[in-house]
Amino acid sequence: MSLTYTIILTRVISMKSLKNHLSLIIALFTVLASVQIYVAVDRTIAAYETRLKDDYSVIVVANKGFIPAEFKSMSSMIERSEPISTTQVLERLKGEMSQKNLDLLRLTLPKFYRIYLNRYPSPKEINNLQHLLQRNSSIERVEGFAQTHDTVYKLMLLFKNVVQIFSIAIAAVTSLLILKEMRLWQFQHAERMSIMALFGAPVWLRSAVLFRLAIVDAIIATFILCLVFFVIDYYGFLVAQLKEIGISVQLFNFVSDALRSLAIALGVSIALTFMIVIFPNEED
């Protein structure tokens, strides 16, 4: 009888506990995945910004020569500047103009500069920079190419905002689901907790079983997240797609991201366990 009972009890407990664990693990995994997707999108956009920044420059036309330090002193956004050689243009005109006119043109031709920035600017920043540079009387014209501002970039920013809102919504809804699940746990363990209370167990000891479940499930949810991103990383289909548009990015860092995810999972599960322990359901 004893062995049979023990086996049945163990099976019933493990099935019930597996079901209970799964509900919380899935909920926690959803929260972690939504946060990680947001982080990955943010990283992708940052990588794309770097690429755009490297390719982007402002063209300045001036009636006198400037040294790089002069440009740098005009705005903190300016990283470096380089003069654009006019030789190539003049070479092209050699056959069409007389040498005399060509020499005159060389003398009267303004100076062209390419200005590189330390980050990829927004259209507003380009506009401000243009105004700033044009305040200098020696600068005749500034071309910021604001109208050619990358549409893909704008779409990516929009996508990032959508993911952010989506992540917040998922976190809020999932937290409510976790709270419900934990109330269920509290109800399942109510008898044990009330017996412990009769013998003077403090609240933390009575609720230790809930905290233990929350901690174990947070660790499992983080492990599953790592596993999923390991598979994504291993097969590399997402990274390959990003490389096609010139973005090289690490979607999941197996140290810092894993630790952050573990901290979030533990934080969410422990905070919600605290909530149900401190504010028990009146109906219980």
Binding site: I13, R192, I195, M196, A197, L198, G200, A201
Partner: peptide, 21 residues
């Protein structure tokens, strides 16, 4: 109350044992 209960032993008619232990 917890302090007091840690110094009291209680026996109930329905035993109140923890079934999973």
């Amino acid at each position: 109350l917890n302090f007091l209960r840690r110094h009291i032993g209680i026996v109930f008619q329905d035993y109140k044992l923890i079934k999973e232990w």
